[in-house]
């Protein structure tokens, strides 16, 4: 609270310690990665492993450079990213709307419960071929797979959050004569903001699963396509390069959601 307050030597030591641990942590994280890359590279150079099958960092790097030179890397990234974002957004919106509807009509929720349970347990990817027939072998099918993979979990998580809203708070609002929509807007929704954020976090991960699987099934471009293609023609360097890019993209998106979470929670005040 008080910035000018003098820091005691004991507290200073404590703070220094935190900083030191933080530095140590970073150092180890970077060293581990470097050690792994160097060992991998070395193992390839010394023929401990077969670089043709196991690839190696220098070859991955060359493969990446090639993609950039050809000018296709941007396209593949754009295709996969846009499919992911569209699938993610659609699944979240549809899931939220469905969860609200289930909360609004408890009888519908009771009726649909077994269907949701089965849909949730079903590996959605099994429906991939049907979706390709319906949506055509293109980005539409990929987005459909993504939505399907993501939406059921979203509905179930959000709906469970909604019905677990503190009865006491609902009762309080009802005592003031609140209508059902007021109860939803003034208690259920705000109380579920943390829930919604955690749903977003889960969805972003699932959306990536959906898109990559979708691209495995049907695609002419995208990182999933590159991975499958690379595997088929035994270009393991290309596969590794694509996975590397995928790692970067997923991390980036995950941290974007975490950042969103931090801002919202600051406003929300838990």
């Amino acid at each position: 609270m008080n910035a000018q307050k003098k820091i005691s030597p004991g507290h200073q030591r404590y703070l220094d310690n935190i900083k030191k641990t933080e530095k140590k942590k970073r150092l180890w994280q970077i060293s581990l990665l470097l050690a792994f890359l160097i060992l991998w590279e070395l193992a390839g150079q010394m023929r401990w492993i077969d670089p043709f099958i196991m690839s190696q960092p220098s070859r991955v790097w060359n493969s990446l450079a090639n993609l950039v030179r050809e000018g296709s890397l941007g396209l593949h990234i754009a295709v996969t990213t846009s499919e992911t974002l569209i699938g993610f957004a659609l699944a979240t919106i549809i899931g939220l709307a469905a969860a609200i509807a289930l909360w609004w009509f408890p009888l519908a929720a009771k009726i649909l419960d077994p269907y949701l349970v089965v849909l949730n347990a079903l590996p959605k990817i099994a429906l991939g071929p049907i979706l390709i027939v319906w949506a055509g072998a293109g980005p539409k099918a990929i987005i459909a797979v993504t939505v399907l993979v993501t939406v059921v979990v979203t509905i179930i998580n959000l709906y469970n959050g909604f019905i677990q809203t503190d009865e006491g708070k609902i009762h309080l609002l009802r005592s003031f004569g609140a209508s059902r929509s007021q109860i939803f807007l003034k208690v259920v929704m705000p109380a579920n903001v943390p829930n919604l954020i955690s749903a977003l976090k889960i969805n972003i991960g699932l959306a990536w699963v959906g898109v990559i699987v979708g691209e495995f099934l049907v695609s002419r471009a995208g990182l999933g396509y590159l991975i499958v293609y690379g595997g088929q023609v035994f270009k393991l360097d290309l596969v590794m390069a694509s996975i590397f890019i995928l790692c970067l993209l997923t991390a980036l998106m995950y941290y974007a959601v975490v950042y969103l979470e931090e801002i919202t929670m600051k406003i929300w005040h838990s």
């Binding site: 006491g168 309080l172 109380a191």
Partner: peptide
């Protein structure tokens, strides 16, 4: 109510106004 049931996402003033907001 028995427990205060103040809404953590609202300021104190926001909490006090909730009954009026419903009307």
């Amino acid at each position: 109510p028995q427990r205060d049931q103040l809404f953590p996402w609202r300021t104190i003033l926001g909490n006090v106004l909730i009954g009026i907001e419903v009307k």
